[in-house]
Simulated assay, not measured.
Amino acid sequence: MKKTSWLRKNWLLVAGLSFLGVHIGTYLIQRAAKNSVKSTVEIKHKNLDE
């Protein structure tokens, strides 16, 4: 009888953690982009006021 690999035994855990990792990574990238745009707009707004 073949020994089943850890990955085959725990495929659901691996799939779930991969799913969460992708979504958390996407969230962090979106947040960083949003903050970058916000700071760029603030800098442009300050330059217009001067």
Rank of each mutant, 00 (worst) to 15 (best):
T26D: 12
A15K: 02
L12P: 01
K34I: 03
W6L: 11
L12V: 13
K2I: 08
T4E: 15
V22W: 04
V14K: 01
L12I: 13
K34C: 03
A15N: 02
A33Q: 13
W11G: 02
W6E: 08
T40C: 09
W6F: 14
V37E: 15
A32H: 00
R8D: 12
G25I: 00
W6Y: 10
G25S: 07
G16N: 05
D49C: 03
K46N: 14
V37C: 07
W6N: 05
V37R: 09
A15G: 03
Q30Y: 04
E50H: 09
N47K: 12
A33F: 02
G25R: 06
Q30K: 12
I29Q: 07
K2E: 12
K3E: 14
K44R: 12
K3T: 14
W11H: 03
K3W: 10
H23Q: 05
D49G: 02
M1A: 11
I24Y: 11
L20G: 09
S36R: 13
K34H: 10
D49Y: 05
V14D: 01
K44F: 12
S39H: 06
Y27I: 04
I24F: 13
R31V: 01
K34W: 09
H23V: 07
A15E: 02
S39E: 14
L17A: 08
I43N: 12
V37N: 09
F19A: 07
N10T: 00
N10L: 00
L17W: 08
S5W: 01
T26I: 07
H23M: 08
S39N: 13
I24Q: 13
L28C: 08
S39V: 07
I24M: 14
I24P: 05
S39D: 14
A33M: 10
E50M: 10
L12M: 05
S5P: 00
Q30T: 07
K44L: 13
L48V: 13
E42M: 04
H45K: 15
R31N: 15
T40A: 15
S39P: 02
L13S: 10
L20T: 09
L48G: 06
H23N: 12
H23S: 04
L28P: 03
G16D: 03
V41S: 00
F19V: 04
R31G: 04
A32M: 01
L48R: 15
L28W: 11
K3S: 08
E50S: 11
I29T: 07
S18K: 03
K2G: 09
L7P: 00
K46C: 04
N35V: 00
G16T: 10
K38V: 03
A32P: 00
L28K: 15
H45C: 08
L17G: 05
H45N: 15
F19P: 03
K46Q: 13
S5A: 02
W6A: 06
K34S: 12
Y27P: 01
Y27C: 07
M1N: 09
A15M: 05
K9M: 08
K3F: 06
K34A: 13
A15I: 06
S5F: 01
K46I: 12
Y27M: 11
I43G: 02
L48Y: 11
Q30C: 09
K9S: 06
S18Y: 08
